[in-house]
Amino acid sequence: MTEFHLSTPLSKSDLDQLSTGDIVYLTGTVLTARDEAHARILEFTERGEELPFDLEGAAIYHCGPLMEQKDNKWEVVAAGPTTSARMSKMTPRLLERYNVTALIGKGGMNNVAGPLKGKCVYLAFTGGCAALAAENIQKVETVYWSDLGMPEAVWVLKVKNFGPLIVGIDAKGNDLFAKIDEKARNIFSRLI
């Protein structure tokens, strides 16, 4: 296990050096997107419409942050990860069209190791760390699709040393969560 301090957007060499179990801290720009934002991104794509934000090299954080407006600026109150598996079905189509280099969330993703291979990593943030995550967000740059509601909107965040994040799926196709699941099933099958 190695610790990395990386800046967004992640480069090909950044992705190549990461392996499952490594610890990552990110500095740069991160965009939040949950179920509704993913669905809208895919709707825009299917209609051939341009997105109002750039996903080239993007780091997408599966998060529904709690925000507060002070002096005409948004501030993050809490920004813990949401369950990434909910976005698993939409992720392959998203990655076919957009050069997203990092997905950040909680609890792993199902059947996305193949689509991530060679182009993207999944970084797991421990659930229950909403206040810790908020501490590492320096600034809310802007918000898109606020009509979806605060947790579903796309928030553009400037982060510094955002983490610790664990490489759950690396760009080589290795899936830490799948390995743990398989090991648990093997142990369970021996017990019955």
Score class of each variant (00 low, 15 high):
residue 2 T to D: 11
residue 2 T to H: 02
residue 3 E to L: 09
residue 4 F to E: 11
residue 7 S to P: 10
residue 7 S to D: 06
residue 10 L to W: 07
residue 11 S to Q: 07
residue 11 S to R: 05
residue 13 S to N: 15
residue 14 D to I: 08
residue 14 D to T: 02
residue 15 L to V: 08
residue 17 Q to M: 03
residue 23 I to C: 04
residue 24 V to A: 01
residue 25 Y to T: 06
residue 27 T to Y: 01
residue 27 T to L: 03
residue 29 T to G: 06
residue 31 L to G: 01
residue 31 L to H: 01
residue 35 D to T: 14
residue 36 E to S: 14
residue 38 H to M: 12
residue 41 I to Q: 08
residue 43 E to H: 07
residue 44 F to E: 13
residue 46 E to D: 02
residue 48 G to W: 03
residue 48 G to T: 09
residue 49 E to Y: 06
residue 51 L to C: 07
residue 54 D to N: 15
residue 55 L to D: 08
residue 62 H to V: 10
residue 67 M to I: 11
residue 71 D to W: 01
residue 71 D to M: 12
residue 74 W to N: 13
residue 77 V to H: 08
residue 78 A to I: 00
residue 84 S to C: 06
residue 88 S to I: 12
residue 90 M to G: 01
residue 91 T to E: 13
residue 92 P to G: 01
residue 93 R to I: 02
residue 95 L to R: 02
residue 98 Y to V: 04
residue 99 N to S: 12
residue 99 N to E: 14
residue 100 V to M: 00
residue 104 I to C: 07
residue 105 G to W: 07
residue 112 V to F: 03
residue 116 L to T: 10
residue 119 K to G: 13
residue 120 C to P: 09
residue 122 Y to D: 11
residue 128 G to S: 05
residue 128 G to E: 07
residue 131 A to V: 15
residue 132 L to N: 12
residue 134 A to Y: 14
residue 137 I to K: 01
residue 139 K to T: 12
residue 141 E to Q: 00
residue 141 E to G: 10
residue 147 D to K: 06
residue 149 G to W: 10
residue 150 M to Y: 13
residue 153 A to K: 04
residue 155 W to C: 07
residue 155 W to P: 00
residue 156 V to K: 15
residue 157 L to H: 04
residue 158 K to R: 14
residue 163 G to T: 14
residue 164 P to V: 15
residue 164 P to N: 04
residue 166 I to A: 06
residue 171 A to I: 03
residue 171 A to V: 10
residue 172 K to F: 07
residue 172 K to Q: 14
residue 173 G to Y: 13
residue 173 G to V: 14
residue 173 G to I: 14
residue 173 G to E: 11
residue 175 D to Q: 08
residue 182 E to K: 06
residue 184 A to N: 07
residue 185 R to H: 09
residue 186 N to Y: 02
residue 192 I to K: 15
residue 192 I to Y: 10
